[in-house]
C-alpha cells in the first residue's frame, strides 16, 4: 500500500432508503490514496448503492462526507470530473462503434486532443483493427476492457468499479487485475466491488457489507484472523458420508466440499475438534487442520447478518 496519507474517500453515516427498505445503513468508509479496496457482500447488500452515493449518482438520505476533497452532496459535479465509474452493466452505447464511444467520452470530459486520446486508447486496447466495429458486437471480456479504457481516458484520480469482472473468463480477469495494479502504482485509487474471493485477495484491503451495513474490514489476513474460525480438512473414501454426519454437530458451522476434500469450519475450536474426531472414528477418513479461507469467513458473515436482519 503506497499511501501518503491523503484520503480520497471519507464518508460517515451514509444512509440510503428506497421506500421503506434501507439499502445502505450508516456506512463509514475511508479510502486512502493509491489503495485498492475490495468491496464485498452478497447480492442486494448495498454495494452498488454505496458506490453510486460516493460518485453523486444518488442523493444520500443521511450521512455526509467527501470524495476527492469535495462534498458528495453539494459538489457532485466536481467529483464526476475526477472519477472514473465503471457500471455493473455495460453502459456505453451498443449502437456506436468502439471509436465513436471513446470519442463521445473524450469530448464529454473536454479532453484537449480528442483524436489523439482516442488513438492512444484504441491502440492501448489492441483494438485498432476493430475500432469501427459496433460496441454491441463485442464479447463480454472486450466490452469490459472497453468500458475500463473509457473510464480512465480522462485520467481520473479515483476509479469506482462495480463488479467489473462479472461473466468474464479467468485470463481476461487476470489481465484486468494486472491493469488495476498498474494504475494503482501510478497513484490511482480504486474501489472495486466483486463476488470473487481470488479478486478480494488481490485487494490491499477488503470491506464486507451485508444488508447495508459494513460487517468486516481490513486486509484478508486480518479478517480471517479476527473471525476466530478454525478449519479441518477431511479426506478419504468416507469423506462424503462423514460430511453428512458432521452437519449439525456441536461446533460445526460450515461443511463444504472442495474436490475430494471436505472443509469443516467452526468458530469454537474445542467443540469443533471434538466433533470432527468423533466422526473420524466412525468413517474411513483422515483429518488434518486446514487454512481458513476468506470465503469461509464471508459465508459465516453472511449467515450472521441474515440472522441479525431477521431478528430485527
Amino acid at each position: 500500500m503506497n499511501t501518503n496519507g491523503e484520503t480520497i474517500i471519507d464518508v460517515r453515516g451514509l444512509t440510503k432508503r428506497f421506500g421503506d427498505k434501507t439499502a445502505v445503513d450508516d456506512v463509514d468508509l475511508t479510502v486512502a490514496k493509491g489503495e485498492i479496496v475490495g468491496f464485498l457482500g452478497p447480492n442486494g447488500s448495498g454495494k452498488t448503492t454505496t458506490i453510486r452515493l460516493i460518485c453523486g449518482l444518488l442523493r444520500p438520505d443521511g450521512g455526509e462526507g467527501t470524495c476527492l476533497g469535495h462534498d458528495i452532496v453539494r459538489e457532485a459535479e466536481a467529483i464526476k470530473r475526477q472519477v472514473g465509474y465503471m457500471t455493473q452493466r455495460f453502459s456505453l452505447y451498443e449502437d456506436l462503434t468502439i471509436r465513436e464511444n471513446l470519442e463521445f467520452v473524450a469530448r464529454l470530459y473536454a479532453l484537449p486532443n480528442v483524436r489523439q486520446s482516442v488513438d492512444e486508447t484504441v491502440e492501448g486496447l489492441g483494438l485498432k483493427s476493430r475500432q469501427h466495429q459496433l460496441a454491441g458486437t463485442l464479447s463480454g471480456g472486450w466490452k469490459q476492457r472497453l468500458a475500463l479504457a473509457a473510464c480512465i481516458m480522462h485520467k481520473p484520480r479515483l476509479l469506482l468499479l462495480d463488479e467489473p469482472t462479472a461473466g468474464v473468463d479467468p485470463k481476461a480477469r487476470r489481465e484486468f487485475w494486472d491493469e488495476i495494479h498498474h494504475l494503482a502504482e501510478d497513484g490511482l485509487t480504486v474501489l472495486v466491488s466483486t463476488h470473487y474471493m481470488d479478486e478480494a485477495e488481490r485487494c490491499h484491503r477488503v470491506v464486507y457489507i451485508a444488508y447495508g451495513t459494513i460487517v468486516a474490514r481490513g486486509t484478508a489476513e486480518e479478517i480471517i484472523e479476527s473471525s476466530g474460525l478454525g478449519t479441518f480438512v477431511v479426506a478419504g473414501s468416507g469423506a462424503a458420508a462423514a460430511a453428512r454426519a458432521l452437519n449439525g454437530m456441536p461446533g460445526v458451522e460450515q461443511v463444504a466440499a472442495f474436490g475430494q476434500d471436505i472443509h469443516v469450519v467452526g468458530s469454537h475450536g474445542p467443540s469443533l475438534a471434538e466433533s470432527v474426531h468423533a466422526v473420524a472414528e466412525r468413517y474411513p477418513i483422515h483429518v488434518a487442520p486446514g487454512e481458513t479461507t476468506l470465503e469461509d469467513v464471508f459465508i459465516r458473515l453472511m449467515s450472521e447478518a441474515q440472522v441479525n436482519e431477521n431478528g430485527r
Partner: peptide, 12 residues
C-alpha cells in the same frame, strides 16, 4: 438501455 447511468456519472 441503462446508458443513463454512465451519462449521469459524467460531468454533464
Amino acid at each position: 438501455r441503462g446508458t443513463i447511468e454512465n451519462l449521469l456519472a459524467m460531468p454533464l
